[in-house]
């Protein structure tokens, strides 16, 4: 598996209150990688480190096979970036913003840019500062896509947008990925949104990557078990127990990761039984993983 993005022991701190600590991140080439985390988890900081907008205090970053921030010029030429907040100069018109961006990106596709502009119904003479939030989001996506990048880095691209615009933007990303086999790193705290489009997921909290795994594995292995006559000790369990609601003598609830059907045998071997196995959706899994990670830290 080749990696479009790889970090090893990445370190960065902002004052005393926040730091990215020992971040090991692996984004497979051609994947749509959902970068999940609550607000303030460090997603935007990590993205800025990946793109050379910030200089790390330690560790190693490789993006598209090149070390960052040393090779930022060649990496940024192959990367489309949609930042958390609109970054295009508000006094420019849409046409001027396109002209400026085009001048810096040799792989810019005029025909497709025009096609996207029409599709997103962005009038060329509208001032960027006068665009609505949705239109602004579309413009940023247009700028990122029309440069035909190998890697798309989208930082909360649909945050605060209405469902129609969200769908338009995500549809254009998926269309692009299908056509070009590009890699996408998309950060969000809107878990349901990523569930439909991502094939890998990384969970970040308080500057640490607490999990990184294929979406399928994340979704299928996360279960809520209702266990009868549960043992006190969980030594030797073949799965990870993320959370356990103790209820001696009655039915206990376990939140587990890495569950497979054959593991019923383990439960019966310790004198317990599983009354029910409940699938968790991504959001429930996300919340439980955060909770258990925070419990471990405490």
């Amino acid at each position: 598996m080749t990696l479009a993005i790889e970090t090893n022991a990445l370190e960065y701190s902002i004052g005393r209150d926040f730091r990215v600590a020992g971040l090991d991140m692996h984004v497979p080439t051609g994947s749509v990688y959902g970068f999940l985390g609550p607000n303030g988890a460090g997603k935007t900081t990590t993205i800025r480190l990946l793109l050379g907008l910030l200089r790390p205090a330690g560790g190693r970053i490789m993006v598209l096979g090149s070390p960052m921030p040393e090779q930022y010029k060649s990496v940024l030429a192959r990367t489309g970036y949609v930042p958390e907040r609109p970054h295009v100069y508000p006094s420019l018109t849409v046409a001027e913003a396109l002209m400026l961006h085009r001048a810096f990106h040799p792989t810019w596709d005029d025909v497709w840019a025009e096609e996207l502009r029409r599709q997103f119904t962005l009038a060329p003479d509208r001032r960027v500062g006068a665009l609505s939030k949705g239109e602004s989001g579309k413009l940023l996506m247009l700028l990122a896509l029309a440069q035909r990048p190998e890697l798309l880095v989208l930082d909360e691209p649909t945050d605060g947008l209405d469902p129609v615009v969200r769908r338009d933007i995500l549809a254009s990303v998926l269309q692009y990925v299908t056509d070009r086999q590009a890699t996408v790193l998309i950060s969000s705290h809107l878990v349901h949104e990523l569930e439909r489009i991502c094939d890998w997921v990384g969970l970040m909290d308080a500057g640490r990557l607490i999990a990184e795994l294929p979406m399928q594995e994340f979704k299928s292995g996360l279960k809520r078990l209702r266990v009868v006559a549960a043992p006190d000790s969980l030594a030797g369990v073949p799965f990870t127990v993320l959370a356990r609601e103790r209820n001696p003598g009655s039915v206990e609830q376990w939140l587990v990761r890495g569950w497979a059907p054959g593991m019923h045998e383990y439960i019966t071997s310790v004198g317990a039984s599983v009354r029910e196995v409940i699938d968790l959706d991504l959001e429930e899994g996300f919340v439980e993983m955060l909770r258990s990670s925070r419990d471990r830290v405490r």
């Binding site: 793109l51 907008l53 010029k73 060649s74 940024l76 930042p83 100069y89 810096f104």
Partner: peptide, 17 residues
């Protein structure tokens, strides 16, 4: 002025030294 307003994010994300 305009780069300062946008905290230089646009300029820094351009593929130019």
């Amino acid at each position: 002025g305009h780069d300062h307003q946008g905290r230089h994010v646009y300029a820094l994300s351009l593929p130019v030294s």
